[in-house]
Nucleic acid binder design. Structure first.
Lengths: 341, 341
DNA sequence: CTGAAAGCGCTAACAG
DNA sequence: CTGTTAGCGCTTTCAG
């Protein structure tokens, strides 16, 4: 039963007594084939166990019906949920997904994009936190549309799908301030990244300004995106005498929360926490974590949908898509947390 | 700067004044090329920005340097950690990964395998809980080696990488019994799956027998692999008057634990929990969850390593690989939990 | 060490 | 509605 791929389009053609072209037509659903011959071809295909060779098809048609997905890490819940959205709509449009983990290393990101180009993918969806100049150049040099999912560059030169980070952080910060906090810590990624400096930090600063609180740089912390990093930054947050924190990553939020709990600090009574991604991590703890709720699956799905249009040479009416977010109130904030614009 | 792929091997050849064959040789690292012409070819490649077309190469060589990974769901931490191990060693051997989510639906699994065959992947790594007969037939019909990661079939007809589930569950069950529990609940997946019935349940029964406790079918529960399902099964576990539980999935364990906590049952004082996958979920809660520790990343990595051998037509000395596991004691079991063989 | 020639399996005009 | 004819870009004998 091995060697399924042995039958070629030629075998089918000669068996039925038609030309390659005819077989190709029925395989590709071309309507210009007489019903009777179509039936015969289909029968032969079945008997021979013929399956089209996508590689040959790719060479001839210059379309591989494969897209590349470049992401920091599949084991990161935030990205994997985006990936699931991407994969589902990719399948819906009959695309396969070539997955690459980069750990946000620009060198690996560059290699990944180049490699995907070599494999002739029809398009690429890129996830991460920032686009290094060299990566940007590589993307520009590639003959395949690229869309960013879950982050963006400051110049908006590439199509992307995101939520309104400024508003999301602004709202949460204000809510915390209304809850009585004068010192709210902001825990984000490197300020060298546009998404952190121009969006998240901006939202935080806007909130402070609107609420009449002076911006204190010492309340802004940079952290890696993992649990251990959260525990570490928690110590600094404590030292800075913050009484609440907004984080950009759920694992970091849990690290901070558990640090507090382990130190005997009551959450939310003595310390409130709001996180950003609303992954499963935010709901399995006690207390569960209040979070900005991003439509992660949809971000991936919409990005993929955009990509299909791009691959189809359609014009996008809007290249910078912003999806709505909400705030999910849970146990790490006091019940009277009030969300307002 | 667009249209990078414009240059072909032919362009390079004519620019240098050699034949295609020569360029192909230097591109593929064939040593039979004079150093001077090699240098010239390399220079031309650089000037023209030539990048080999993997699709054409695949057609000609019948190797795509791409493998397929079929998994239930990327957003499931257990599988995504396996996937990361796979991806890392795949890259090490210069393979790309085509990812497909199946939600364990046999229909989608069958389609996935067929699709991967169409795409001419050189090999496939399959993850899941069970192989449906039809899926098994499809796998057999495909002309590419397949290895299973993180589960197995009862007949061992396919190469696989796992831990010793029987021993792992036996040890944890016995440890719980030694802790004084007469009624330990076992929460696993459907008994129609070999991994549940012939391995996990067996380990549980062996432990009971060794400890002189009668097997009580009403203490074995079937549950889906998610948090909500865990909360649901917890109610039944409580009704069955179990005082401890062993689960096959971390999210399920958290569901059970939180159900107990929410009901005022003290964990671990009044109820102990041991889970199986030791994902990040097990460490971010308070208490953190005692877990069987599987080398998930390594399971994926070893599976991929096996696959490379298979793709290289090497003979495997051992097709059923068992990796070592340990038990990670945390806060959902009493401190005197004693692990013995 | 290098070139010529024959495909890999399929799509895509172009005829008819 | 169907066949013919070119390739797609590269690998791979086989000569030399």
């Amino acid at each position: 039963m091995k060697k399924k791929q042995s039958a070629t389009i030629y075998d089918v053609a000669s068996r039925v007594g038609v030309s390659l072209a005819t077989v190709s037509r029925v395989v590709n659903g071309n309507t210009n084939v007489r019903e009777s011959t179509k039936r015969k071809v289909l029968a032969a295909i079945d008997e021979l166990g013929y399956h089209p060779n996508a590689v040959a098809r790719g060479l001839a048609s210059k379309k591989t019906t494969t897209i590349g997905v470049v992401m920091p890490d599949v084991t990161d819940m935030y990205y994997s949920e985006l990936a699931r959205g991407i994969d589902d709509v990719a399948n819906m449009y009959h695309y396969d997904v070539l997955l690459t983990n980069t750990d946000e290393d620009p060198v690996r990101e560059t290699m990944a994009v180049n490699n995907l180009a070599t494999k002739q993918v029809d398009g690429i969806i890129f996830m991460g936190n920032e686009l290094d100049r060299e990566v940007l150049n590589t993307i520009a040099s590639v003959d395949a549309p690229v869309v960013l999912a879950g982050f963006l560059t400051s110049d908006g030169s590439l199509p992307s799908v995101n939520i309104d980070y400024v508003a999301a952080i602004r709202e949460s910060t204000k809510a915390l301030i209304r809850n009585g906090h004068q010192r709210v810590a902001l825990v984000i990624g490197p300020l060298t990244h546009a998404i952190n400096k121009q969006y998240r930090l901006k939202g935080y600063q806007d909130a402070l300004e609107e609420m009449g609180i002076d911006y204190d740089e010492s309340l802004v912390f940079t952290s890696h995106q993992d649990y251990a990093a959260g525990m570490q930054v928690a110590e600094r947050v404590t030292a800075a005498k913050a009484t609440a924190a907004i984080t950009y990553d759920d694992e970091v939020a849990l690290g901070i929360m558990n640090y507090m709990i382990d130190k005997g600090v009551k959450v939310p009574d003595d310390f409130e926490v709001v996180t950003s991604n609303n992954t499963k991590f935010a709901i399995v703890t006690r207390p569960a974590v209040t979070s900005i709720s991003q439509p992660k699956y949809d971000i991936g799905a919409v990005a993929m949908r955009m990509l299909t249009k791009l691959m189809n040479n359609e014009i996008l009416e809007d290249t910078q898509i912003t999806l709505p977010h909400t705030i999910e109130r849970r146990g790490t904030t006091k019940n009277d947390l009030e969300i307002k614009m």
